[in-house]
């Protein structure tokens, strides 16, 4: 039991990331409100960033900013996941803005952001 707890504590960031991912995914599927769907999408994005950042961390090392000319790699954490997170953030911002603009147009046309109502109204319109 204490072994298991030890593992949980060691992997706390990854586990938190997975749980956040689950929360976001479930809300993405279950929420009917499109704005809430976008928010849950953003929660999923954040969980991925947390996971990536935790993968780059190494115990007892500092951020990869070279001080006093020490260029030995065993002093610094892994800089690559940081760069990947940066890419992820940019894409997440762009996609969220695009989604929100689409929802804005849907609201203008149908007067609601509820997914079910939009589907119903669109079906009625098609008839």
């Amino acid at each position: 039991m204490s072994d298991f707890l030890q593992t949980v504590v060691t992997f706390r960031f990854e586990i938190a990331a997975v749980i956040l991912f689950g929360i976001g995914f479930m809300n993405l599927l279950l929420q009917k409100n499109l704005i809430r769907k976008i928010i849950s999408f953003n929660i999923m994005d954040s969980s991925i960033f947390l996971f990536l950042a935790s993968q780059g961390f190494i115990d007892g090392r500092v951020a990869p900013i070279i001080v006093n000319g020490v260029t030995d790699a065993s002093n610094y954490i892994n800089p690559i996941p940081t760069g990947l997170v940066l890419t992820g953030i940019v894409v997440s911002v762009s996609v969220s803005a695009f989604f929100l603009a689409l929802v804005h147009r849907l609201y203008k046309k149908y007067g609601t952001v509820e997914f079910d109502e939009i589907i119903m109204l669109a079906k009625k319109e098609a008839e």
Partner: peptide, 19 residues
């Protein structure tokens, strides 16, 4: 293992970038 210096993510690419 989280935070271990030997995990496969910190390979020769990282060393090259930092050094």
């Amino acid at each position: 293992l989280f935070g271990s210096p030997n995990n496969p993510a910190s390979n020769e690419v990282v060393e090259r970038y930092v050094e």
